[in-house]
């Protein structure tokens, strides 16, 4: 219980927990659309692709302000999406292959830039290497405010275009036939996911970001068949995992926050898969044994 009280009194912990919870809410909401559109791994590719964008933005402007880095990440993410689409459309390489190619080469280029920057400046001065694993423990109030602003804007867009995004997720051809520009909507949704990723890079880092998008959505999906409920649940699960991860990481020295958030999230996903009413695997198995027993009689 000591952790919970500290949550409200300890300045650092409050920022870390608040930041992680914010990330959980934003990525949970946007992840729902990504997962329903079967584009969960696109988020993974975008997260990896953001790295060279961030590094180039830093190299060009020598500034570490979140807005500049966000722009870099957004441009790189947009370029990566475009490349993936073109590869799938014009060659015989599958979407799976295109994702793998773009993800790994963008990340490799990012690593080249990152090591170039770190070796040039005083070691680790740029702080960019923190984006690899996140730096949740070093979140300060300024970061949290920026994250809240960005995340709030993204969530506002989702609220405004809820009907359109819903249509896009469940029946894109129908949306197109109604006169919605599905390409524009698609690009918009991807851009919002990039915002979630930029928030996430500060907290859980490039490699683990995929789980922040996919995990809450998959967990929430098990509890309901309604999109609205799913989104709210995903936001709650994401926030819960964020706070839990932050609390666990301060309980002992040397426990990184990002991985703890992901592991908490994994526990939530597993519980949902096994115990969610109606869709839970445990109930499914019980039902089957009971039926088998009834049949045997």
């Amino acid at each position: 219980m000591g952790g919970l009280i500290e949550l409200f009194t300890d300045y650092t912990l409050r920022n870390v927990a608040l930041g992680s919870a914010l990330l959980g809410v934003v990525s949970g909401v946007l992840g729902c659309f990504a997962v329903l559109r079967r584009q969960g791994l696109l988020g993974d590719a975008l997260a990896h692709a953001a790295l060279p964008g961030i590094c180039l933005a830093y190299l060009l402007t020598a500034s570490k302000t979140p807005v500049v880095l966000l722009l870099g990440a957004a441009v790189a993410g947009w370029l990566a999406t475009l490349l993936i689409l073109q590869i799938v459309k014009h060659t015989r390489i599958s979407e799976d292959g295109a994702l793998g190619i773009v993800l790994s080469t963008f990340f490799a280029f990012g690593i080249v830039l990152l090591t170039f920057i770190t070796k040039r400046s005083d070691a680790h001065q740029s702080g960019l290497d923190k984006f690899l694993f996140g730096q949740a423990a070093t979140l300060v109030e300024e970061h949290v405010i920026t994250m809240a602003a960005l995340g709030g804007a993204a969530l506002g867009m989702v609220a405004l275009l809820y009907k359109e995004f819903k249509l896009l997720a469940f029946d894109a051809p129908f949306a197109a036939s109604l006169g919605f520009d599905t390409n524009v909507l698609s690009v918009l949704l991807t851009s919002l996911i990039v915002i979630a990723i930029v928030i996430g890079l500060q907290t859980v880092g490039v490699v683990l970001m995929a789980a922040m998008l996919i995990g809450p959505a998959v967990a929430a999906r098990q509890w309901t068949d309604r999109l609205g409920v799913m989104i709210i649940l995903a936001a709650l699960f994401g926030a819960g995992a964020g706070v839990a991860g932050a609390l666990i990481s301060v309980s002992d020295k040397g426990i990184p926050t990002g991985p703890m958030i992901i592991l908490s999230l994994t526990v939530i996903v597993l519980c949902s898969l096994f115990f969610a009413p109606a869709r839970g695997l445990v109930w499914d198995a019980l039902r089957r044994t009971r039926q088998r027993a009834a049949l045997a009689k």
């Binding site: 791994l41 490699v207 683990l208 995990g215 998959v218």
Partner: peptide, 15 residues
């Protein structure tokens, strides 16, 4: 979904 399954398992292991 297939791609979601991958996206849940490997970050958990990596974390």
């Amino acid at each position: 979904g297939g791609e979601s399954a991958i996206g849940i398992v490997f970050p958990a292991m990596f974390a």
